[in-house]
Amino acid sequence: MEFRTLGKTGTLVSTLCLGTMTFGAETDEKGSHQQLDRFLDVGGNFIDTADVYSRGVSEEIVGGWLPAHRDRVVVATKGRFPMGDGPNDAGLTRTHLSRALDASLRRLGTDHVDLYQAHAWDPLTPIEETLRFFDDAVRAGKIRYAGVSNFTGWQLQKAALLTEFLRLTPIVTLQPQYNLLARDIEFEILQVCENEGIGVLPWSPLAGGWLTGKYSADEAPTGATRLGENPNRGVEAYARRNNERTWQVIEAVRSVAGSRGVSMSVVALAWLADRPTVTSVILGARTIEQLDDNLGAAGVHLSVEEKELLDAASAPLVADYPYGGPGVNQRARVIP
Rank of each mutant, 00 (worst) to 15 (best):
E2C: 08
V13N: 04
V13S: 09
L16M: 11
L18Q: 14
F23N: 00
I47G: 04
A50Q: 02
R55G: 07
W65N: 02
P67N: 11
R70I: 02
D71K: 15
R80I: 08
M83D: 06
D85L: 13
N88Y: 10
A90D: 09
R107C: 04
V113K: 01
D114Q: 07
Y116N: 08
Q117C: 11
H119V: 08
D122N: 08
P126M: 13
R132M: 08
D136G: 13
R139G: 11
A146R: 06
N150P: 01
T152A: 15
L156K: 02
Q157N: 11
F165G: 06
L166D: 12
I171N: 00
T173F: 01
E186L: 00
E188G: 01
I189Y: 00
Q191P: 00
C193F: 01
E194F: 03
G197Y: 04
V200Y: 06
L201N: 07
L211P: 02
S216Q: 10
S216I: 07
A217N: 12
A220K: 14
T222G: 12
T222M: 12
T222R: 15
T222N: 10
T222F: 10
A224F: 12
R226W: 13
E229I: 14
E229D: 15
N230P: 02
N230F: 13
P231K: 13
N232H: 14
E236F: 15
A237R: 15
R241M: 15
R241A: 14
N242F: 05
W247Y: 10
W247H: 13
W247I: 09
Q248C: 10
V249D: 04
E251L: 10
E251V: 08
R254N: 10
S265Q: 09
A273I: 07
S280D: 02
I282F: 03
L283R: 02
L283N: 03
A285R: 07
R286I: 10
R286V: 09
E289M: 12
G299I: 06
K307M: 14
S314L: 04
V318E: 00
D320M: 10
P326L: 01
R331Y: 03
P336A: 11
